[in-house]
Nucleic acid binder design. Structure first.
Length: 460
RNA sequence: GGCGCCAUCGUCUAGCCCGGUCUAGGACACAUGGUUCUCAUCCAUGUAACACCGGUUCAAAUCCGGUUGGCGCUGCCA
């Protein structure tokens, strides 16, 4: 058995799609599981749309996800001389030929076929004329139009898939001798690189019979094919720009790479548990167990997975990720417990800078301004007598205050609000926050007192 | 239009290959309750699905056929 070699072949014409990232993961997993190699080949035959920035984006995304290939990135354009050589061979053997039809003619033909409810295809009469080796026009593969052959392949995920050869037409393989088109370049490069398993998106299923014909014309060994289900948007169509958030790097500022990988992996494969590392995925992974149906990219689930990973992060990593080196370690669990996305860290900025808020927020339920002001003044007194670190003693003192200020006939829980609510708003400026006692223990005693004063002054 | 792929809760799915153990299980989301000043966490509970029709069979989510629907491709893009 040959050593397993797989690859992803993204085109550098935009951001690295999350679907590409999922494809990269499954390819990487398959390679790792089978002791094979994983390659990245930049598909840049479209010279007009390919950009260097896009290629850099692919590198950055892969590096971020830690799905680095064995060896350097391969660039399809570096292989042009080989493509030309192969194309010349096909031409000289009569397996490919120059088609001199104009694009207008081709378009007209296509429309007529559609009107006649026929399969759109172009069988070219130039194939058997003396024009067939004269440069000009595009190069097509000579396909047998009267063939009754069924081209089939055993998809490693879907089972046998069949196509009628006669419906293919003499499809295009190059714009010119030094300008190969996708289907031809992929086959040439995959063969050159010794790719054993082509694992790619479902949108390539209909390219497969064409590629098989090219493999045969070239006399190359046909690899195994496996077509991955598509990553879908909320409307169940292929996830695209209009759905937003299609670029892998779009997730870099809010999500941990392990979380995105975990999410993407579990989207079209069922692992033994919801939260799983990619090393654990390697152990369980079997190509044939990848699902067939497309899966909706569900951000809610991604958020949940991300929150699980954030809770597991150590203090140093949190500080680096959020770029807040001065953050106190004791504050971290309070924050990570409430974080879905990394940038939400700004909701906790009161831990390191003065909060700003509307004075109305200080009022809890139907209490009067006087009652709130009084509560704050009493709380201030409690803080003044507090040692600044013992949370239990502070809670006890504030509970006593609650009993004192509240109606003795109602339970303590209900009267605590009169003390805790304004205190919490004074410290955090928010209506939702961790326990104010926890916050007070993080801020210095002086800061707590200052913020209470600020709150009191806000009230008329 | 042609060709192809797919089809279980709102979403991701288990079960399907080897029919009965499925009054269809789990996770996310949602709802309710407990803890609670608020939020989050945690715990408990709940709502919610086999696309349809026919066949095979004692028995079908599971096997077969058809229909419908969704999606993909249909380029001198990849």
């Amino acid at each position: 058995m040959d050593k397993v070699k797989v690859r992803i072949a993204p085109s550098p014409t935009g951001s690295f799609h999350v679907g590409n990232a999922q494809s990269a993961l499954y390819n990487w997993l398959f390679a790792r599981k089978n002791g094979g190699d994983f390659y990245v080949r930049i598909e840049d035959t479209d010279k007009i749309r390919s950009t260097k920035e896009s290629e850099n984006g692919i590198r950055e995304a892969l590096a971020w996800l830690d799905l680095m290939p064995n060896g350097d990135f391969v660039r399809q354009s570096d292989n042009l001389h080989k493509h030309k050589e192969l194309l010349e061979r096909l031409l000289s053997e009569g397996k490919a030929f120059y088609c001199h039809h104009s694009q207008e003619d081709l378009e007209a033909e296509r429309q007529q076929q559609e009107a006649r409810k026929e399969a759109p295809r172009h069988f070219c009469e130039h194939k058997n004329t003396d024009k067939n080796k004269i440069p000009g026009g595009i190069i097509r593969l000579a396909v047998n139009e009267s063939s009754g052959r069924i081209i089939s392949f055993d998809d490693q995920i879907r089972g046998r898939i069949e196509f009628q050869e006669a419906l293919l037409g003499d499809f295009s393989i190059a714009r010119a001798i030094e300008d190969p088109l996708y289907n031809f370049a992929v086959v040439a490069d995959d063969a050159e690189m010794g790719i054993t398993h082509v694992i790619r998106g479902e949108d390539h299923i209909s390219n497969t019979p064409k590629q098989i014909l090219i493999y045969e014309a070239l006399g190359f060994k046909i690899p195994f094919f496996a077509h991955l289900p598509l990553v879908l948007g909320l409307d169940r169509s292929k996830l695209s720009k209009r759905h937003g958030g299609t670029g892998t790097l779009d997730y870099k500022q809010d999500y941990l790479p392990e979380a995105l990988l975990n999410f993407l992996g579990g989207l079209s494969y069922t692992f033994s548990k919801e939260i799983i590392t990619k090393e654990e995925m390697v152990n369980e992974f079997e190509l044939g167990k990848i699902h067939k149906a497309g899966a909706v990219f569900n951000v809610e689930k991604l958020n949940w997975i991300n929150s699980q990973y954030i809770k597991q992060l150590n203090n140093l990593t949190i500080k680096q990720l959020t770029n807040l080196p001065e953050m106190l370690d004791v504050a971290i669990p309070l924050i990570t417990e409430r974080l879905n996305k990394l940038s939400d860290i700004n909701d906790f900025s009161y831990l390191w800078k003065e909060p700003s808020y509307d004075s109305e927020l200080l009022n809890w339920k139907k209490f009067t301004k006087d009652e709130i002001t009084n509560s704050l003044n009493e709380t201030k007194r409690v803080i003044e007598n507090w040692n600044g670190s013992d949370k239990d003693s502070l809670r006890l003192a504030l509970d006593d205050l609650s009993k004192k200020l509240g109606d003795p006939s109602i339970p303590l829980g209900a009267s605590r609000g009169l003390v805790y609510w304004p205190f919490r708003v004074a410290l955090t400026g928010k209506e939702k926050s961790p326990d104010p006692v926890d916050v007070a223990a993080i801020l210095t005693k002086e800061t707590v007192l200052r913020r209470i004063d600020t709150a009191i002054n806000k009230l008329p």
